[in-house]
Design a protein around this nucleic acid. Structure first.
Lengths: 191, 191
DNA sequence: CCTGTTTTTTGATTCAGGACAAAGGAAAAG
DNA sequence: CTTTTCCTTTGTCCTGAATCAAAAAACAGG
């Protein structure tokens, strides 16, 4: 049941059974049905989520009223509206299940307690966020330097099941293009 | 001399005089002349830098051979090629001084020692990188949803001295547009 | 299985921003 | 102070991607 989480924590730190047990006690398991929301814009974000099974998308709505996908979180991803979660102020993002999704959720106080009880976790999350930052930085560079077609190819390469699990309009939104243009790109890509 | 650094650390954690003294012992002060490089692409990044006075730019060179600015680091910013620094593998970024710049530099072993000696620093860098991630995520959303003109205005708002301290071609590259287009935007021909 | 809804495709048109060229400006080096 | 070099402006033409519209395909729910 908690194998994936254990594996994930072990990527950066070593927890003994007792510590891992404590970690488990602090979080709660929850299942969200497809299309339901875990986070709503305007509300203060209560939890950080670890995706054990399923798929989520984080998005916001821009001035013109269009949804723009920030990231997809599949199995073994941590996801939250980090600004809202850490500041405990109202956030701008939505988090929605694209499939029936089982998450382990950790409230802000639970996380703070864990950080005091198991100081190694400071290191874990430090490394996690360094990696997240690096990935995001690369994505900015891709937006600056690459064409939509290159970005699409890179995305599919990094996340091959994406086409099966995510609708094209969501992929388009993630890439920063319209669904129409993505469709045209794909039909011209075949030759 | 070290007031800015002290202030920076105190934003997220409290260090006593002894701890701060230890921190200082682990870093070294260095001045880089305008146009000189602190990091070269292809080499393993030795240090993380705290800018005490001056201005740096982090950039890479894309396939077509163009330089693309990732970020500018002015006073009170931490900057490095995080991937290369933490993995100790060759990196892709360049870091260059845009002005004569005084930095406090921290080597990877020095940082690891500090993290063992003053575990609170895990927390410090965790929070620092969370904030960096949030800012970078917002920048991605801006690239997706905003026009070049909006991005330019936002940038100037967040960093008003930019126009005085940074040349237009560097700002253009940061925004993901050509210098010619930035010039046209500014002259108002566009609207 | 049909029927309404959401996605995807295709097409025509438009626009933000790029490529290239050339000329003015500023600033550093001699 | 002059020359060279780099930086910014201006102009013309070009293209990647958006917009709008509408048909075709895929997907629910009863």
């Amino acid at each position: 049941m908690y194998e994936l989480l254990k594996q994930n924590l072990n990527r950066h730190i070593k927890l003994n059974e007792e510590e891992f047990g404590l970690f488990l006690k602090r979080l709660s398991v929850k299942t969200y049905l497809k299309d339901s929301h875990l986070i709503q814009s305007g509300q203060t974000c209560k939890y950080t989520y670890f995706v054990n099974k399923g798929l989520l998308r984080l998005y916001d709505i821009n001035k013109k009223g269009y949804e723009k996908n920030t990231l997809f979180a599949k199995e073994e991803w941590w996801v939250s509206d980090l600004y809202s979660f850490h500041s405990q102020k109202p956030g701008a993002y939505f988090l929605q299940a694209l499939e029936d999704t089982e998450v382990f959720q950790l409230s802000k106080p639970a996380m703070e307690n864990l950080l005091l009880e198991i100081p190694k976790l400071e290191r874990f999350w430090r490394i996690l966020h360094i990696n997240a930052f690096i990935a995001q930085q690369e994505r900015v560079m891709d937006m600056i330097a690459k064409t939509a077609e290159e970005r699409y190819r890179d995305f599919i390469e990094k996340f091959p099941e994406a086409e099966l699990r995510i609708s094209q309009r969501h992929i388009a939104s993630y890439l920063g293009i319209t669904p129409e243009f993505l469709s045209k790109m794909k039909s011209g890509l075949k030759h």
